[in-house]
Design a protein around this nucleic acid. Sequence first.
RNA 1: GGCGCGUUCGUCUAGUGGCCUAGGACACCGCCCUCUCAAGGCGGAGAUCACGGGUUCGAGUCCCGUACGCGCUACCA
Length: 505
Amino acid sequence: MIESDSDRIRAGTGNEPAKLARPGGWMGNNVRVRFAPSPTGYLHIGGVRTALFNWLYARHHNGVFILRIEDTDRERSTEEAIHAIIDGMSWLGLNWDEGPFRQVDRLARYNEESERLLSEGKAYKCYCTPKELEERRKVALERKEVPKYDRRCLTLTPSERQACEARGLRPVTRFHCSDEGVTVINDIVKGEVIFENKNLDDFVMLRADGIPTYNFAVVVDDHDMRISHVIRGDDHLSNTPRQVLLYQALGYSTPEFAHLPMILGPDRTRLSKRHGATAIEAYRDEGYLPRALINYLALLGWGYEDQTLFTKDELIQKFSLEGVGKSPAVFDPAKLEWMNGVYIREFSVEELAELIKHFLRNAGLPLEMYEEAWYRKLAEITQERLTKLSDIVGLSDFFFHRVQYETGAVQKVLKKEGVPEVLEKAVEILSDNALEFYSYEIEKRLRGLVEEMGLKAKLVFQPIRVAITGRTVSPPLFETIELLGRDATLERLGEAIHLLELADG
RNA sequence: GGCGCGUUCGUCUAGUGGCCUAGGACACCGCCCUCUCAAGGCGGAGAUCACGGGUUCGAGUCCCGUACGCGCUACCA
């Protein structure tokens, strides 16, 4: 999907507006949507959900999905974050048709539109310093007044302006909002929302260094990129009237808006770093599957009848903005885990074996100890026990190194009456060369032992399990023995017997 | 403070005026299966649809108010 990150990122470079492909005219539709993250941190769950809804909407309508990096915050934007976004989207299979565009590459274009507004008297230069602004805001707040910019620079005379310039003050450009009337947003998910213009103030559209602020850049970009539907988090709803006013001032037609409800943490505040792993990479590293993440995230804010499991194609086919709910959703890791397990169980053993090896390798285990076929068997016996792929490590690391007894396992299982005898008999059985070392044969013989000793099966199998795995919980015993191999099994049994003798003496 | 949005089982949701004595999924509990853990099967508990008023023959569904939560109110996005 990505030919070369750097090439892609440069796609919008130049002093001219980025070249934008024509809409997919052959289908006769013009749905063009975008995901526009700011690269100020990693790609998080909330962002992915927004990206996903945009992507689904585009794919459902055979439209165009655009990736745009909103990097106008020069302080906090990083190249690293841009790569994290690109990698994350690629990994999830949320492929984009145009971009990634970067706003820093389009500075000349914002400036051009800003000049136009300036010359039409719809915007003005403001020389107030951040410090002064901050001070006035504080005072207003103390007096319980609404902290609004007082427009003192709106009426600056040319000579006053010159005086400011002479003092070395670098102006920002403010958009002049009308106090009259109302701005109505017809939001696809929220419905009609009415804002009184008098509650808006003259916000900064171009900073002193010529870099646009969000509200301005987003409008120019969405227009230039001919975005038909702006689908984004509803934290942007309150900003929408400012943008609509800009659309009108610039003579642009407005797109459709669809504001998605937020994703919340368990404390019901917007999901963030504070809530633990929210970076998409963290989920990838823990062994969550893209299809599980996508399925789960699709259900956060959207639903389709009673269905909970969806393939990507079904999602594309069934998704609609009308099906998006209005209220925020709490992110539930437990349900994601369950769903991930469901998808893990759908893999063939060949597929799962490959995935599993990757995680074992990352854990530093010596993969070369075993052959291909061995890993397929491992996959087979662990498949229904995995909820995340990384679980494979804790479930099977004992195959790769000496037994480390789990705390309590020895006391609870091994140091019980009759255990040495059980283990010794097991050694006897398993060292019999007439025994073909396959789980089925092993099971037959060991069950014979159970019968012979007249014990409950558990009392025979649990000691053996602890002896060879060090744990009270493991994959099925007979398969585990087969996979461990005769030598290692006998060795471990022997060690356990020895351990018990020492304890006795 | 102002403005905006939201409110159905613990969680995600179905529900668009009568089919709702409110359905499904996760989580939880019990039973079955069973060498452990899972997976699977069966069953259970869990929501006076935030609260209060209306409209209507009839409201979770429409209207108004209140409460609570969240968001915006930056030379962040």
